[in-house]
Every structure is written in C-alpha cells, then in structure tokens.
C-alpha cells in the first residue's frame, strides 16, 4: 500500500531529509523514546520471565506471592532477596532485565553511604536514597516526554481551535478571545502552579490539567493570523460562492494553511513544556515525591555536590533530549519554509 502524497508534502519530506542533523536527531529521538516506552523490560526489580518447577511466571505483568516459589511470606515475592533468588534458581531459572533496579528500588547492599558513586552494580551510581540513577533516568525520560507530548497535543488542539475561530469569524469573537488571552497570559504561571500544588496534591494528570490552562495560548497567534489571511483568499471565497458550509471551509481549506505554522512551532512548544515540568520538579512542586523525574535528579545533584554523577547524569540527559528536539524543530521549520532553496 502506498499513500499518494501531494507534491508539496513530498517536497517537504525531501527538504526535511536534507537537514541531516535534524533527520538523524529525529531517528535518535524516536529510538530513545521507543526504548524508554519499554522501560519495564529494561530496568526493573522483577525478572521478565521465571521458570519454576516446569511452569512459567511473568512477574512484570502479574504479581506472585513468595509462597508460589516455596517461600514463607504471602506478600509479593522480592526477587532481589537472596533467599528468594536461591529458591527459584534451585528449581528453575530467571530472566532479568539488563538493569536490575526499578526507579524506586533501593539498593540496601551499598558498600558506601548513599549517594554511591558509579560501580558495576549501579552503572551511574545511586542517588541519596540509594536508588539506581540509570533506572531513574530511563523512567524520568519517559515521563518527561509523555507529559510534554500530551501537553503539547492537547494544548495545540485548544490553541488551534481558539485561533481558528478568532481569525475566521473576526469581529466580536476575535476581540473577546484576544482580550481574554492578553489578561490570561499576564498571570504569573509559575507562582500560580506553586500555589496550586500546595492546595492539591500534584499528580501527572492534575499537573497536566493545570499547565494546560496556560499552555494552549502558544499557537493562538500564528493560527489566528493564518485564518485572518485565509478568510480573504480567493479559493476560500470560491468555496463560499459554491455554498460550502463554514465548518467544511475551515477544516478543508483554511486549516491546512495554519497547520504549516502549527507543525513548525510544535517541537519548540514541546521543548518548553518539558522544561517547565523539569523546573517544577527541581523546585519540588512537580510530580509527587518518589516519581522518577529529571528535575528531581537535578535538585539532588545540587544538594549533593560531593556526588557529581547525579548532576552530570541529569544535565547530560536533559541537554541531549532538548538539543535533539530543537534540531528536529529546526528541520521541520526549514521543511515547511517555501522560500528555502535547495543548495545543490
């Protein structure tokens, strides 16, 4: 099956590929993101598969009591416990993920007080509560991206809708939405989030909702401008003269124009969302305590200057992630730029 692309889309894809840096950044980013989506299979304190007395167990998806493996407690088996390990390995085998720690697993067998430096057991060391830094990075990367993507997509839908309505209908709709945005964007978002987080317990979704209240405004201006322009284009007039209904005109004729601006701004909105979340986590007003987050790791790095691996790990992963996104964003922007000329 081949999808027939319009020549414009083909040209854009070609243009995007021509930006080698952005093109490779995209593949690296997609790779890292897919990799982190399977974080449970990569860094976990439970084995992926256990074979015990001829039958298979999948601890990652289901929890088994210790008694299932001939232990004493009815609680969930702690597969890292040397006793349990021995019980299982006597009568079967375990397949572990490459990293034997989940983001909240505490390594009680440290030789040095936490935070422990990198070792063969904890490749990037541990944080000040003895948790594996590599595992927390993998999970933290995933949560940052997922949060950023959700926020960007939902915020963009809102922004495009408001901008489209304002630009296309003009008049009172436009006036009211513009004035509202001016007032609303004057709010000190960061402080508001800090105050809110002391009233309600912040979680992934409450935080998302709170930030969504403000992040939808990013795209309103560009989309509004595109629709204002589109309103007077001849082909929109022609559609009106054909008797095409307003929603169809907006979706089929005007929206594609606005999508160019929207798509080229989106990677930058995504970067902004991730940075805001990291900032909140750094200050301790973000995701609930214990969640893996890059901001929290950064703040640990700041509090434990004697353990530079914390700060360096957090800094490098943030820098790589944000640079990749920015490179992709630049390539997308170039791809959509009709004036960009191929150098050949």
């Amino acid at each position: 099956m081949t999808i027939k692309l319009s020549p414009i889309a083909e040209r854009r894809i070609l243009q995007f590929k021509r930006n080698r840096r952005g093109y490779w950044s995209m593949w690296i980013f997609v790779g890292l993101f897919l990799f982190s989506l399977f974080a449970e299979m990569i860094a976990n304190d439970k084995p992926i598969v256990v074979q015990y007395q001829g039958s298979f167990y999948f601890p990652i998806v289901q929890s088994y009591p210790e008694t299932a493996f001939g232990g004493e407690f009815e609680t969930q088996a702690d597969y890292r416990d040397p006793v349990v390990k021995k019980l299982i390995e006597d009568k079967g085998w375990m397949l572990w993920p490459p990293v034997h720690y989940s983001y909240q697993t505490i390594n009680y067998n440290l030789d040095v007080p936490a935070p422990a430096p990198p070792s063969s057991e904890n490749l990037l060391g541990t944080d000040d509560q003895g948790r594996d830094v590599l595992a927390r990075l993998i999970y933290g990367f995933r949560i940052s991206i997922l949060f950023g993507l959700t926020l960007t997509v939902l915020g963009s839908i809102g922004g495009v809708a408001v901008g489209a309505a304002g630009g296309y209908f003009g008049g009172m709709v436009d006036l009211l939405s513009q004035r509202f945005i001016e007032i609303w964007s004057g709010m000190p978002v960061f402080f508001l989030l800090i105050i809110m987080s002391s009233v309600i317990t912040p979680g992934f979704f409450t935080l998302l909702l709170l930030m969504l209240l403000f992040s939808w405004m990013h795209l309103v201006d560009v989309v509004r401008a595109e629709f204002l322009k589109a309103r007077n284009l001849d082909y929109i007039r022609a559609a009106k003269a054909l008797g095409v209904s307003t929603p169809v005109i907006m979706f089929k004729h005007a929206l594609p124009n606005a999508m160019v601006a929207t798509l080229s701004m989106m990677p930058f909105v995504l970067t902004g969302s991730i940075t805001t979340l990291t900032g909140l986590d750094f200050l301790g007003f973000g995701l609930p305590p214990g969640s893996p987050s890059l901001g929290e790791l950064l703040s640990q790095g700041k509090n434990n200057l004697q353990a530079p691996w914390l700060g360096i790990a957090a800094f490098l992963s943030l820098a790589v992630m944000l640079s990749l996104l920015t490179f992709i964003g630049e390539a997308v922007r170039d791809a959509f730029d009709p004036r960009k000329i191929f150098k050949g």
Partner: peptide, 24 residues
C-alpha cells in the same frame, strides 16, 4: 441562500489564488 448558490457562480481574477493548492 445556499440552495441558490448552485445557480450563481463566480470566477476570480487570479487563477493561482483561486484554487486551493492542496486539493487535486
């Protein structure tokens, strides 16, 4: 007015601007 639109049509000046570039 919509039902009447099929009986009265318009052709614009600029053939480059009056056709949506994204439709065949």
């Amino acid at each position: 007015i919509r039902p009447f639109r099929k009986d009265m049509q318009i052709v614009f000046q600029d053939p480059y601007g009056s056709l949506s570039p994204r439709l065949s």
